[in-house]
Design a protein around this nucleic acid. Structure first.
Length: 830
DNA sequence: TCTTAGGGTTCG
């Protein structure tokens, strides 16, 4: 189609422009040059033309329209200084004669106007992308398309124009210089009117705190509707009535107290009061009203301007609202519900079932136990959608909520596991009637939960985004509630259900096999939290710490690759982490010790016996005439074999240290430089026991003279921790520290493995250092988790618990992740 | 320019 067009009329395709701002920074221009192929090749990838006639209220972002400017109206300026102009586009079509070409009203807003009001002329052929579609209020009058196009900063729109060939364009005064050179990217200065200064008849931008709202619902007309009452520090108050054919373009408010920014609302009078209604080009940002919450707005806008001023405004509104007690509603948990109360319930959906045409049953929980006798809505288990394991395990904590009439559609489309707020839910005491008489006077009336029909008091259901602060708070209540509940009957009930002779329902079978499959297919398994849903790494990366997740990912890489480097020394007191001193380091330290020792000690080294040890001295077989001294600690005769005895050694080399440590149970390297026996500097092991080298923390130890050991010589076999205590040594612990790069296809992150890693691998960090068989095992495990030289397909999945946390490096906070409550599957068989 | 709704408790 386009080729024919280009061929006959010899148009050139010149880019126009794209103006979009994300978070205040200008995106680069996207410049397209002359076309000698299809238009699609010139546009961002996968763009598809949509004919006017096929336009819908929620266009997908890869659609573009193409048309000729039939009329262009003068630019109008709002009181806010923002500009807007309207044009009428006629469908470009190749058909020879079109009796009734489609025409559509198109509005250009904001800085886009500055960019193209002079560049576009009647008769120009344009391509528009990322427009917003709304119903045309003037369709009946002007006979044009029932929908209209709106292009603004917020839609991320791009306008392209065809210009005539170079020759023609040279003759034309309009297009004699390349359009892209005339572009100026300016930021739009949005002005926001305090709510007490709002006047009738103007289109304005406002900021405010939500005092009341009705979540979007389908109106009796063509659109979705949402009512939002906002207030601000000026003591103003504004009732906004918002419509849109696409519910997603209405503000995404979760709760009273949220902060909103509306662009382009029109003020009008109704019932002697001013009210706002969304004007063309309306767009909304919604911020969590929680002090200190991230400044990431909920919005459908493709891009938006958000300056330092905006940030200040949101912060101020948050502060003001949180100090103004009348704005917020008290939150009510299930444990606090009073009979006949109406409240907003923030909860997680566990299961749902269609009851009849006018009602849907939702089984929800908020982690607290409702103290009232609850009515259980009878439903066929087979019509109940949800994980049977969860339904059974949480049955004591879930409540049945009946959702009626106009809310049924919304309830029906909810996904199990979703976090919700059910607004204005009614805790109703069941009415006893003649057909269901009370059997005794003591019968306690049951409590039932209803979401009645209608939208009064903001009745409706809001799906909460994962990152909203209410969800984060809710999750913290849910998780401990599950583990408490696990100890009770929950699991037993589940087992009984799965073990009954009755054939399990399909979802039940799926759950049972899924549990098995987890263990089979995953190279690591969880030691707890199996009930938690898996979160994608992309979602993990989107959220702010601290959080805990269950994830499923592959091990793309790990550090250190030299596995012996993964073992470090950790001080449980000062929490410092250090490398294990290398053999070279210990060797040179020992050499320094005996070289300087013999020089400084003078002619009379303390080589004599003491009441608690016997001393032997001999000369080493090297050229330096080095003197080796060994003090044998006296003990019972029964323990006097070398394998059971303790020796204090001076003047030994690394080699001798190894040889002696094989023969004696315990070996303490010492020095007699100071005339009494003392420990060496703690950069070498202070004690070797069963070939295991033990180190002390330099910061936390207060070494005592070795003579302090004398009283111990009477009490039989020596214990490592006792010796350390007597000698004033704070023991360092061997620990594994590794970094796993996890990837699940949706995202990738680095997670540290350093707490309880011995459980993770089933290997002791202290032992692996001296045991080659264990080193081989560790290598085999890592080769299983992350096979060398294989494709991604051969990498096993890892089921892991990870938690996110902030680490401050002085100037900024960084997000770190740590693996916990996870072990290698069947590590004992590796 | 304008249908919807224009906050204010229910059939269950």
């Amino acid at each position: 189609v386009i080729a024919k067009f280009v061929g006959t009329l010899a148009w050139w395709f010149i880019l126009l422009f794209k103006v979009a701002e994300v978070g205040g920074s200008v995106m680069p221009f996207q410049q397209l040059q002359e076309a000698d192929g299809s238009i699609e090749a010139q546009l961002p990838s996968h763009m598809q033309r949509i004919e006017f006639e096929k336009l819908q209220l929620s266009p997908s972002s890869n659609q573009y329209v193409e048309g000729t400017i039939l009329a262009k109206y003068p630019t109008h300026e709002f009181g806010t200084g923002e500009k807007v102009f309207k044009m009428v586009l006629e469908e470009s079509t190749t058909q020879q004669s079109v009796s009734n070409p489609e025409t559509i009203n198109t509005f250009i807003f904001g800085k886009l106007v500055n960019d193209c009001e002079h560049a576009l002329k009647q008769g120009d052929r344009v391509v528009l992308t990322k427009f917003q579609v709304s119903t045309s209020p003037s369709a009946r009058k002007d006979g044009r398309h029932v929908l209209q196009l709106e292009l603004s900063e917020e839609t991320g729109a791009t306008v392209f124009v065809y210009a005539k060939s170079v020759k023609e364009s040279a003759a034309s005064s309009n297009v004699n210089s390349p359009i892209n050179q005339r572009l100026k990217i300016g930021t739009q200065d949005y002005t926001y009117v305090p709510l007490n200064q709002i006047k009738d008849g103007v289109t304005v931008n406002v900021y405010g705190v939500v005092k009341f709202f009705k979540p979007p619902y389908r109106s009796k007309g063509t659109d979705f509707s949402s009512t939002v009452t906002i207030v601000d520090a000026s003591n103003g108050r504004l009732n906004c009535v918002l419509f849109n054919g696409n519910a997603d373009l209405l503000p995404k408010i979760c709760k009273v107290g949220d902060v909103v920014r509306f662009h382009r609302i029109k003020i009008q009078e109704f019932n002697n009061e001013l009210q706002a209604i969304n004007a063309a080009g309306f767009s909304a940002l919604t911020f969590d009203g929680t002090l200190g919450a991230p400044m990431k707005p909920r919005t459908n806008s493709k891009s938006y301007q958000f300056t330092a001023n905006d940030q200040r405004t949101v912060e101020e509104l948050r502060r003001w609202a949180n100090a103004t007690i009348s704005i917020h509603k008290p939150t009510v948990k299930l444990s606090e519900v009073k009979p006949a109360e109406y409240f907003d319930l923030t909860c997680q959906l566990i299961a749902k079932a269609v009851v009849d045409r006018s009602a849907v049953l939702l089984k929800v929980w908020d982690g607290t136990k409702c103290p009232h006798t609850l009515r259980q809505v009878p439903v066929d288990m087979n019509t109940l959608e949800g994980d049977p394991a969860d339904i059974h395990r949480l049955c004591k904590l879930t409540v049945d909520v009946l959702i009626y009439d106009n809310h049924v559609g919304a309830a029906h489309s909810l996904k199990v596991g979703t976090y919700l707020t059910i607004h204005n839910i009614h805790a109703k005491l069941a009415t006893l009637n003649a057909e269901k008489p009370s059997t005794s006077l003591e019968t306690v009336p049951e409590m039932e939960f209803h979401l009645h029909g209608g939208t009064s008091y903001g009745r409706g259901i809001t799906v909460l985004p994962e990152e909203c602060s209410d969800v984060q708070q809710l999750k913290q209540t849910l998780e401990p509630a599950i583990s408490e509940d696990q100890d009770s009957l929950g699991d037993l009930t589940l087992l009984e259900t799965l073990n009954t002779s009755r054939r399990p329902s399909a979802p039940e079978r799926a759950t049972a096999t899924r549990v098995e499959r987890c263990h089979q297919e995953s190279a690591t398994v969880l030691t707890a939290h199996q009930h938690i849903r898996t979160t994608s790494l992309r979602d993990v990366l989107d959220q702010t710490p601290p959080q805990k997740y269950r994830i499923r990912a592959k091990l793309a890489n790990y550090e250190p690759k030299a596995l012996h480097e993964s073992v470090k020394l950790y001080c449980p007191k000062c929490h410092s982490l250090q490398e294990i001193p290398s053999d070279d380091h210990v060797d040179s330290f020992l050499q320094d010790a005996y070289t300087s020792g013999s020089a400084a000690a003078g002619p009379d080294p303390p080589t004599h016996d003491a009441p608690w040890y016997q001393t032997t001295t001999w000369e080493a077989e090297d050229q330096r005439r080095r003197q080796i001294t060994v003090h044998f600690v006296k003990s019972d005769e029964a323990q006097s074999t070398p394998e059971r005895s303790t020796i204090l050694v001076e003047g030994v080399s690394l080699n001798e240290l190894y040889r002696l440590s094989k023969r004696f149970a315990m070996l303490i390297p010492i020095t007699s430089r100071t005339k009494c026996l003392t420990l060496n500097d703690l950069s070498i092991p202070f004690l070797i026991q069963d070939r295991k080298w033990h180190y002390g923390c330099k910061h936390c130890s207060h070494p005592q003279p070795v003579n302090a050991l004398q009283p111990l010589s009477q009490t039989g076999p020596w214990d490592l921790s006792v010796i350390a205590k007597v000698l004033g040594v704070q023991l360092l612990r061997h620990v594994f520290v590794m970094r796993f790069t996890l990837d699940d296809g949706s995202g990738s992150l680095d997670a540290f493995l350093w707490d309880k890693v011995e459980q993770f691998f089933g290997i002791s960090a202290a032992d692996v250092v001296i045991d080659e068989a264990l080193q081989d095992k560790l290598t085999r495990i890592m080769d299983t988790l992350c096979p060398p030289r294989t494709s991604d397909d051969d990498c096993p999945w890892l089921e892991c618990c990870i938690k996110s946390y902030y680490v401050s490096d002085g100037s900024e906070q960084k997000t770190h992740y740590q693996i916990f409550d996870t072990v290698v599957a069947e590590a004992e068989d590796v």
